[in-house]
Amino acid sequence: MNGVGRTHPLLRFAAWAVALPVAVLFLYPYWWMMVSALRSTREIMSAPLRLLPERLDLSIFSEISRIGGVELWRYALNSVAITGASTVVGVVVTALGAYALVRKPKLPGFAVLRWGFLVAIMYPYMLLVIPVYLVMYRLGLLGSYSGIVLFLALGPIQFFLFEQFFRAIPKEVIEAAVIDGASEAQILFRIVLPMAAPVTATVALITFLINWAQWFPVMLISTTPDTYTLPVALLSMNGELGANFQGIMALAVLVTLPIAVLFLLAQKRVMAGMAAGAVKG
């Protein structure tokens, strides 16, 4: 690995001298958030930089057990349910769709479908969500969980990851199965999908991470706070006058911590998947 140049100790020191402060700057907001969640507003105002809380007091979580007239656990449950359901729907629908488009790109309508999808993901997301409100209104899906879940199901990275994977399957594998008399359903379920298990896991993971963070479509399609997820609850709490600073930090911890843990457990897969999904074939 050290074929090019010899690493000078001074150079190595300089590299650490840059990298370490960078890492501290990137991680400090997390630390500050967690410490602030455990300190009263008065304590924070008197010493904003304190690195450890004065005492371990978790009572803030019972203080924010109701936000905007809805129980905190309901937001949490909504987050898990909406994120989980949209991930399952998204993975199944995208896998089947990408497979069909890759296997038979020349079938009438398939090229148009692919282009329609590409244009839709080029459209500035926030501005797509606005007319989606009109669509949901016409479909009678405003305020429904299914409206939120269906809208969150599709995404560009997911599609590109599946497309890349299916394209890379050697034609001979499929042709051999066709010669053996396998039906298309058998080819898909017995040969292709078992091969696709790793990419499916990656797509599911990335979809979960992305959809957990979604707030604008959830807020827009919702008609009452009953279908809000944790990030939307956090946003509305942050927008209140005379904001409860400690409560906001505690809720931010709840929004961030599960996803940070999930990411750290699967970091390799997530980073490789995101890089590959972004650099489409």
Binding site: V92, V93, T94, L96, G97, A98, Y99, A100, L101, R103, K104, L107, F110, L113, G116, F117, V119, A120, I121, Y123, L127, L128, I130, P131, V132, L134, V135, L139, L150, F151, A153, L154, E184, A185, L188
Partner: peptide, 25 residues
């Protein structure tokens, strides 16, 4: 037809929540 069946849910979601909103907009 089986490939159209595979692509159908993807096509429905793309049209409903991708193409239609843009056209509508």
């Amino acid at each position: 037809r089986i490939f159209y069946l595979f692509a159908l849910p993807f096509a429905v979601l793309t049209i409903l929540f991708g193409v239609w909103p843009i056209v509508l907009s």
